[in-house]
Simulated assay, not measured.
Amino acid sequence: MSTTFTPSKTELNKRTEIQPNSALSDFLQETGALTRRLFIQLQRRPSTLIAGIIQPIMWLVLFGALFQNAPQGLFGTDVTYGQFLGAGVIVFTAFGGALNAGLPVMFDREFGFLNRLLVAPLASRFSIVVASAIFITTLSFIQTVAIVTMSALLGAGLPNTLGLGLVGLIVLLLVLGVTALSLGLSFSLPGHIELIAVIFVTNLPLLFASTALVPLSFMPLWLQWVATLNPLSYAIEPIRYVYLHSDWSLSSIVMQAPWGSVTLGAALLLLLSFDVVALLIIQPKLRRTLA
C-alpha cells in the first residue's frame, strides 16, 4: 500500500530559502568570473595600467609647463593652466581607456575564446559585455584617482566631497557610453587591426575638437560648433567648473556655446542621453552576435 508524503510548510520555506532566484545568481556568478579573468590578465601584464597612469601625469606636468607663461586671463581670472588642464586630462584619459574596451573582446574573438563562451551553457551571454564594462570602469576610476591626486599635488586643488562624487558620476557616464560603442565595434569589425585604426583615427581629433586644451572662446567659430557637438566637452566643462567653483549647483552655467548657455544639469542630461543612444545603437548587433 503506497503512501503520499506531503511536506510541511517549514520544509517548503527551507527549500525556497535554499533555492534563490537561480537566473540572477547565475548571471552574477558568470559576470564575476569573467571580470575576475580580466583582472587576472591585468595582474599578469600590469604595463597597461601603469602606462595608463603615467601618461596622463606626463600630460599634466609637460602641458602645464608648456603653457605656464600664457597671457593672464586667457583661461579665466586667477586660473593657472594646470587648474584648467586637469579636467581635460581626467576626461580624455577615461575616454581613451573606454575606447580601448573592445580590444580584449576582439582578441577573444580572434583566439577562439569567445566562441567557447558562446557555446557554453551561460545563463546570459550579456555577462560577457557587462564584465568588460565593469573592468574598464574600474580602470578608469583608478586612473581618475591618480590624476586628481597628482593635480592636487601640482597646486590645482581639490573639489569638496560632493564635487568629487560629481566628478566620479561624470566619468562613469562618459565611460559607459564610450565603452558601449567600443564593444559594438569589437563585434562589428573584422579584426583588431581595423579596431585599432578606428581608435587612432578617433582619439586625437576628438581631443582637439573639445575644450580639453583650450577654452571655447579661444577657438574659431566653426570649431566652437564642432566642440559643442563633442560629448567630451560636456564632461570636461562640468568637472572644470566644479574644480574652480565651490558654490556650484545644477543650474550653474558651465559653458557658453555658440547657440546658448549650457548648465551643469543640462550637461549631465546630455551625457545620459549619449549613453542611451550608444546602448540603443549597439543593442541589435549584440543580440545578433550573442544569440
Score class of each variant (00 low, 15 high):
M1Y: 12
T3M: 06
F5T: 14
F5M: 12
P7V: 10
S8Q: 13
K9M: 11
L12F: 13
T16I: 12
Q19E: 02
N21Q: 07
L24R: 14
S25A: 15
L28D: 05
L28Q: 07
E30M: 04
A33L: 10
T35R: 09
T35V: 03
R36L: 08
R37S: 09
R37V: 08
L42R: 02
L49E: 08
L49A: 12
I57A: 09
W59C: 08
V61K: 01
V61C: 05
V61N: 03
Q68F: 14
Q68M: 13
G76W: 03
L85H: 02
A94Q: 09
A94H: 04
F95A: 00
A98K: 01
A98W: 00
L99T: 03
P104I: 05
M106T: 09
D108Y: 09
R109Q: 09
F111C: 11
F113L: 07
F113W: 15
F113I: 08
N115Y: 06
L117G: 11
L122T: 07
F126I: 14
S127D: 10
V129E: 01
S132H: 12
S132R: 11
F135H: 14
F135C: 04
I136A: 02
Q143A: 13
T144M: 05
I147S: 02
A156V: 13
G157L: 10
G157V: 11
L158I: 10
P159M: 07
L162W: 11
G163S: 02
G165K: 09
L166Y: 07
L166W: 07
G168C: 07
L172A: 04
V175A: 10
G177I: 02
A180E: 09
S182K: 04
G184A: 09
L185P: 02
S188P: 12
L189T: 06
G191D: 15
I193T: 15
L195F: 06
F200E: 13
L204T: 15
L206A: 06
S210V: 02
A212G: 07
F218A: 09
P220D: 11
L221R: 13
L223M: 04
Q224R: 08
N230Y: 06
L232N: 03
Y234E: 04
Y234N: 05
I236L: 05
R240N: 01
R240Q: 02
Y243P: 12
W248M: 03
S251W: 13
S252K: 09
I253S: 13
M255L: 14
A257R: 00
P258R: 00
P258G: 01
P258S: 00
W259S: 14
V262Y: 06
L264C: 06
L264R: 11
L269D: 04
L269A: 08
L271C: 01
L272A: 12
F274D: 01
V277I: 08
L279R: 00
Q283K: 15
R288Y: 06
T289R: 15
A291G: 15
